[in-house]
Amino acid sequence: MKRIWTLCAALLSVVSMASAQAPAAAPAPKMTCCSRPTAGANATEAFAMLATNEDFSGGHDAPLPYSYEGLGETIEFKTTDGQTAKAFEIKSNVRSDKYLFVIHEWWGLNDYIRKEAATYAKELKGVNIIALDLYDGQVATTADEAGKLMQAVKNERAEAIIKGVLLYAGPNAKVSSVGWCFGGGWSLQTALLAGPKAVGCVMYYGMPEKDVAKLKTLNTDVLGIFATQDKWINQEVVGQFRKDMAVAKKKVTVVNYDADHAFANPSNPKYSKEFAAQAHTLVVDYLRKNFKLKG
């Protein structure tokens, strides 16, 4: 019996030493609202990482079937990476150098976004509306598909598309942008890329830029629409954005609603018709003021 115990002890000792020397298994990636992105990750990459979180994906129900039939047409333009991209445009009835870039959420440029573009076209007379497609023609119908598409977006390609549409708008263009969720973060990036052409920026619960040096280059103020129940773009994130904008000496107007992430999306289970309508009115008033529209 004594020999058996001695042998067991020896085996346990060997196993313990092997465990100590072997590298620990990497835990499965888990993003939370406060998780830090990997070194070098920027704001849009950090937001894309949320697609790995089941709670985030599970909070987005698939959009209900909807088909847009109205004004507008698909356009194609050259991008700065030597390729081409497509977008949905509703031109102003009068010649205008004023442009509103509408940036889709994580589903892609679907008919819901075309409908939003049409709504802005009716309310912002004298403004050209262009709904960008940062997914290069791909549209998701399930949360799993949307997460994969959002993660697959390369910053270089998205920026090339935005730079391309800025060139399409022309050298005298006055540009504002609006986007939701994934598109909210890219709305801010669009304002940064637009440089002196930028006259407005609206971001609905999107990831803010965290590089103060970049924020200092903004040529416009920012209207941020956020939700106090949002676990992802939470109040800590929003508070830090306010501080960063203050350091950058740029104006940001933050409007919080007692709602959850994606509350302005009619197909989302957390949709708030009341708050969505209130936010939309604020956004239209902001855009009219920044575009200096009359009437």
Rank of each mutant, 00 (worst) to 15 (best):
A160F: 11
A87I: 03
N128V: 10
L167A: 08
A18V: 04
V284S: 03
K289W: 03
G59V: 14
H60C: 01
I162E: 10
L149I: 03
L293F: 01
S96L: 10
L223N: 09
Q189V: 01
E209V: 01
A198H: 03
T52L: 15
D97W: 03
K115R: 06
G200W: 10
G108Q: 03
T84C: 09
V238R: 00
S187P: 08
K251M: 02
G224E: 08
T253H: 06
V15E: 01
F88L: 06
A41G: 00
M31C: 14
S267E: 11
L167H: 01
D258P: 02
T79A: 15
G108T: 04
K2S: 04
D244E: 13
S267W: 15
A18C: 06
E156Q: 11
G82T: 14
Q138T: 12
V102Y: 04
T6R: 11
G137N: 03
A39P: 00
T281S: 07
Q229C: 00
Q278A: 14
T142M: 08
R288C: 12
R3S: 07
N128P: 04
G239Y: 06
K2I: 11
G40K: 12
D221N: 05
T79F: 10
S19N: 01
Q83V: 13
D111N: 15
A85L: 04
R242V: 08
A10T: 05
L166G: 03
F56I: 05
K2P: 06
A191V: 07
A20I: 11
V212W: 14
G295F: 05
G164W: 10
K214Q: 13
E159R: 05
G126H: 07
K251A: 15
R242C: 08
M150D: 06
A173D: 06
W232V: 12
V254E: 14
G126R: 03
D244S: 14
A152Y: 11
K210P: 05
D260Q: 15
I129C: 08
E123P: 01
L192I: 12
S272D: 12
S176K: 00
C201R: 04
D61T: 09
E105F: 08
S187Q: 09
K30Q: 12
A118P: 08
K163R: 08
S13Y: 09
Y257K: 04
M203E: 14
Q138G: 06
G185T: 11
F226W: 13
S19P: 00
F291P: 08
I75M: 02
K210G: 07
G239C: 01
